[in-house]
Design a protein around this nucleic acid. Structure first.
Lengths: 231, 231
DNA sequence: GAGCTAATACTCGATTTCGAGTAATCGAGA
DNA sequence: TCTCGATTACTCGAAATCGAGTATTAGCTC
């Protein structure tokens, strides 16, 4: 069984909403948007109704009443149960107190970076930087505005945290692009040469690995000694 | 239809592996582990066979041969197709060049931080810090070791990037915990008071919101003016 | 009062996902 | 040579996921 009976982060947001007062699913979705919680939690509205059912099935929420206004579809109003409140607190405790292994897509990309020619890699890293830096600028402006209107920081720490991560990403990517461009990155020369051999002479990476000394010089003799399980 | 015909990051890793030479699924899984790619890409071995089938169905890989060694189960060896190579390069290009909105679990937690008493929040943030800082230390040591053995940096940039993110997380969480502890965080005083009222007098947050001036003083009059759609 | 757009309030089912299970074989030690 | 745990290699189905679609109504304009 999964660690949580209902594991989708949207379920966490639903419990958070219903902790305030009873609501019907559609109201929950508008509330989440209005509060900007959809900026910090991935809210997929297609999953909302399945998640509400799952929460009800496991006794975290219960139907309070079913109302009909005019000729509109029926709306079931749900309220949180004691078990639901406990689940929410437990979940919140876990989210704050326990780091969980995240896999950033850029990590996956970097793990296969030699799969692109170095110049192309630099180009793409710079393309990413443009978008990331624009977002940093936008968020910074928003934060300044919230500070100016004295909207208490406790209500937007999640946004501050996101900004901190974006700034770290920007700084790292900036530095990496620079180091590739100037061949200051260890292995960059070899990387450049491997792509040159492939593009100009059609020598595939597999062939290159068979005789690294021939293609890259004596200092790459070690490559033969290391089996395919490099690293 | 989804952006990618096979969207699981593991499919990206499978294409990356088969780009090197033909392999059978189980060999792919051991290769990914041996290369440490499972550190940068979420590899769920339960999904491996479904993903390989999906890749084959869409023409990104094809069965090369089916071999049987001794009485072992049959193993189908797959090779990448031209379409598969194109898909891999396109995917890699996207991973490197285009930021995608990530939802860090801590962001979700911070968005509901007032749901915990301030002192408990500090406690949990510090608990997280202990784990994160231990990991930072471990990774730093590993990086030093790789530098010492002259293992080229280009082969571990993904690890450097992860370290950069962890360091940013640590710095932010450290600062936040400190600011809550010292009430330097905007709104922290109100947050503390709200929990005190609730724990000592049983006044629920909902009741408090109805008459903020009474509970928090004149400077919180604005809270009444802002409807539930705060922020 | 006709027509249009935006908002409201869901529903559906094709895929995808993944944990847990299975079963064979290998190798090390007793 | 017997056993037992580790490794090899894969299967299955229950549950989750999510985009895309639908139908109604409110409110606005002309």
């Amino acid at each position: 069984m999964a660690r949580r009976k209902v594991g989708n982060p949207l379920a966490f947001a639903v419990l958070g909403c219903l902790g305030e007062r009873p609501m019907h699913p559609y109201e929950i979705s508008t509330m989440l948007k209005a509060r900007g919680k959809d900026q910090s939690i991935k809210v997929n509205y297609g999953s909302l109704y399945s998640i509400v059912s799952a929460l009800e099935k496991h006794g975290f929420i219960e139907a309070l009443e079913t109302v009909r206004e005019g000729n509109r579809p029926e709306r079931t109003v749900y309220q949180i149960t004691a078990a639901g409140e406990a689940e929410f607190t437990d979940w919140l405790t876990e989210l704050v107190g326990t780091p969980s292994r995240e896999f950033h897509p850029l990590e996956a990309g970097l793990a296969y970076l030699p799969g692109l020619p170095p110049d192309r890699a630099v180009e793409l890293l710079e393309q990413r930087l443009a978008v990331v830096d624009a977002e940093i600028k936008e968020m910074t402006a928003l934060h300044e505005q919230m500070t100016a209107t004295e909207f208490p920081r406790i209500f937007w720490v999640e946004s501050e945290f996101r900004l901190a991560l974006l700034e770290a990403e920007s700084a790292y990517v900036h530095q990496l692009a620079e180091e590739i461009r100037t061949d200051a990155l260890g292995g960059a020369v070899y990387w450049r040469q491997a792509w040159k051999l492939f593009l100009e002479k059609g020598i595939t990476p597999a062939e290159q690995l068979k005789d690294p000394v021939k293609y890259f010089g004596q200092e790459f003799a070690w490559m033969k000694t290391i089996p395919p399980e490099a690293q």
